[in-house]
Design a protein around this nucleic acid. Structure first.
Lengths: 248, 248
DNA sequence: GATGGAAAAATTGTATCCAATATGAAATAG
DNA sequence: CTATTTCATATTGGATACAATTTTTCCATC
């Protein structure tokens, strides 16, 4: 099957002067303040959101778990109000689901879900790479190479974060805040499933090999090759996870 | 430029038994209760969310407007609590942005934004159509044709809703809840910009023509043709809006 | 008249309290 | 002994109350 984009999405007068950073918290922020969010105003909810998201991605909170607002409030030493704010945002990200008058439960996992996530990743990330490649500098490619090298020696627990950073580094120059947020959200959703396959060595080996091939194509600024590599990388990764989950 | 998907996203053992309806309210719900949300528990926020979203899309709330929680609470006859819940969800949808201790403002509009939205629509909707086409029944195509006929005579104010329904009808059989929610969200985001072009007759004329061509390709189950039509339809629509906005 | 600062008002963010519903246990009827 | 009903408890959804911060206003000073 061959899908061909015969439209070259050439929008004229594209200035792209600023990266148009959206005002949203954007999920990725270095822990700027290790004092347990006791100091300043209005950041408890963010802390709770990030912690719960980590808990779900890492598997500490399993699918179907009930999230009791009172328990969470006590755990974080705050009232139920910022907890509720965090839960609303988690719902928007697809990690939990509310049932009226009953509470929030961690979203279920399924083979169909991971298949869908990777189908969407393929579409979104190839678009991002295509738009980013003309703006991508050698310095940025170098940073991606560094991340790749780090990933190859880091412990498996770090794989998800480093992998996301690697991909984001390549997409960043596209300067599309909506698209980048979407890619990040899909990456988080995928990380929840990654644990079931990252244990096997050949999965990581294959990923590393494909990353290096991708970087090479980026160095050459070969758009067709780079996008093809990325698409294969994502779709085959998704198929591997899908098979792994249907076997269980 | 030719992008070719050389991977045929063939996931084996694909059961797709149920459509896996997500528990989230899903934004599209018929007004089941015209009594101003006074009756049952836990639905004020939904009413507020839908109303505010409509207000932003329709332009009644303009970019940069400050959304005062107290005013909204009084307008809807509730406390600030369900208002805040609605605002959090609107933020996740990209319609508003919070600035700490200052409040929520309606997200700005820009030519870059509409360009990005249509780039994402092209990627997401062609994927949805590709996945839906093998499952699409003649009855569903008939319903799409009915919607198209209705759209050609309806007042311009109805165009956005009918257009979204037309596209959703064709994508629905793909049975991908995440993807469909994403497509719907992008459609809402695009509707905010549609007002600037829908006034011109040739825009609507062109859209109707392309819709009929698309339906014909769907009838023939010609995937390459249908996906090509859809991609051209979306990308050229986006370029038209982009040009219109850069001229202002 | 313009400018800077302090106080007052307004607004957000959080905590506490209340209402409505759901969950679960105990009691009663079969 | 089991099933059903009723009542107590727990939990969510919403309203009110309070604290922290920002914005506005007003006045003094240059």
């Amino acid at each position: 099957m061959i899908i061909l984009s015969m439209l070259k999405l050439s929008y004229h007068s594209s200035e792209t002067k600023n990266d148009a950073e959206m005002k949203r918290p954007s999920a990725v922020m270095a822990h700027q303040d290790e004092s347990a969010s006791q100091g300043r105003h209005g950041e408890q909810a963010l802390e709770i959101l990030q912690t719960l998201r980590e808990d779900i991605i890492s598997g500490r909170l399993t699918a179907g778990s009930l999230l009791r607002q009172q328990l969470l409030a006590e755990r974080f030493g705050v009232s139920r109000m910022p907890v509720r704010e965090a839960l609303y945002r988690l719902e928007a990200e697809g990690f939990i689901a509310f049932t009226p008058n009953k509470g929030a439960t961690v979203a279920p996992v399924s083979a169909e879900d991971v298949r869908e996530i990777y189908e969407m990743r393929s579409a979104a990330e190839t678009l991002a790479l295509r738009l980013a490649l003309p703006e991508l500098t050698n310095a940025q490619i170098g940073r991606a190479e560094d991340l790749q090298a780090e990933m190859e020696t880091a412990p498996v627990g770090e794989f998800g974060k480093l992998n996301a950073a690697f991909h984001q580094t390549l997409y960043q120059p596209c300067a599309r805040p909506r698209l980048l947020a979407h890619v990040e959200n899909l990456s988080n959703a995928a990380d929840r499933y990654l644990r079931v396959a990252i244990g096997t060595l050949d999965y990581a080996e294959k990923s590393h090999r494909e990353h290096r091939t991708l970087l090479e194509a980026c160095r050459r600024r070969d758009e067709a090759d780079a996008v093809g590599c990325l698409m294969q990388h994502i779709e085959e990764g998704g198929q591997t996870l899908y098979r792994r989950l249907t076997e269980l």
